[in-house]
Structures are given as C-alpha cells and as structure tokens.
Computed example of a mutant assay.
Amino acid sequence: MRAVQPVRDKGGETEKITVNLGYVDLGRVDLLVQEGFYSNRTDFIRTAIRNQLGAHSDAVSQSIARHTLELGLRDYDRTDLEAVRSAGETLHIKVVGLARIASDVTPELALATIGSITVLGALQASAEIKAALAKRIH
C-alpha cells in the first residue's frame, strides 16, 4: 500500500463548513477585510483556524501518536484491498485528513477487508461503499 501523503490546501480539495458569528464579531471581521488586513471573510477564518492549529500543534501531534492515526491523504484502491484479503488481514483505517476509497473497490471487497474506519476530516467513497460500511464507520 502507498504511504500517507500530506494534504495541502488546494482548490477543490477543501471541505465546506458553516460558522455562526455574532453581529459584532462579524462586523469586526468585515472591518479588518475593509481595512485590507484580509482579502475576504474566508481568508480571515482560514488564517484564524491555522493560527489555532499552530498553537495546539504539540497537542495534535501527541493525540495522533496516542491514537495511532495517520495524518494526511490516504488512498485505498482495489489492488491494495485485494493484497489485504490475500494476506488474510483486516484493515482498521484511522486517518486525520482525507481517506479515499477508489471507485474500483466493490462493496463486497470493502466488507471483506475493512474492519473499521475512523476519519477526522473527510471520507471520500462511493455511496455504495459508504452504505456497505455504515456500521463500521465511526
């Protein structure tokens, strides 16, 4: 299987979230945008999140190690899962970032080889794979 790849913030490789702010905080953000500190609200929010993640990077690293999580982008395709099945093994996928199960993986193969999935971030897989593994996704 391929190694975990670091995830970079690229267009198209992001997940949309919704943030509710009070009017005063939103006005303060808009003022900073108007004054040119940030290009838009999204720029401000991304910067704030990155700053907080940087401030807590040691805690995140320790938690990843403690929970034996993989950090970054992790792909699983038919060849990977067939090798797992041939070895008589079961995967317990634990990823912080993005886990992708390729379109060439059948629900039957996924059920035979994936014992559990824990993804803190996003899981990309077909609707059929997600439905088949629903009880194994945490």
Rank of each mutant, 00 (worst) to 15 (best):
L73T: 05
G27R: 11
T106R: 10
L81I: 02
L123N: 02
L32K: 15
E82K: 15
E82W: 08
T47G: 01
G54N: 12
R66I: 00
R8T: 13
E15R: 09
D43I: 08
E15F: 02
D104R: 12
Y76H: 12
Q62K: 11
S39N: 09
G11C: 01
D30H: 15
A110K: 02
Y76M: 08
G11W: 01
N40A: 06
A99G: 04
S116A: 15
S116C: 08
S57R: 00
A65S: 08
I117A: 03
I137Y: 00
S61V: 03
T79R: 08
Y23F: 14
T106S: 13
L31M: 10
V29N: 05
P107I: 00
G12A: 09
I137G: 04
G115S: 09
G54Q: 12
Q5W: 07
Q5K: 10
I45G: 06
V84C: 05
D75I: 02
R50M: 11
L21H: 09
S86D: 08
R100S: 04
R28G: 03
P107G: 07
G115D: 06
E89T: 11
L91Q: 08
E70A: 10
T68I: 14
R78E: 00
N40Y: 07
V105E: 07
D75E: 01
L32E: 05
A122Q: 13
A131I: 00
E82Y: 06
A55Y: 13
K10I: 10
R100W: 02
G36R: 08
P107A: 05
L32T: 07
L26F: 00
A102I: 04
K16S: 12
T47V: 00
I64R: 14
L32A: 15
L32C: 10
A3Q: 14
G72S: 04
V4H: 03
D25A: 10
A131S: 01
E128Q: 15
G97L: 10
I45M: 12
N40K: 10
E82Q: 13
D9E: 15
E13D: 12
E35M: 11
A122S: 11
Y76P: 02
A65E: 11
I93V: 14
A83F: 12
T79H: 07
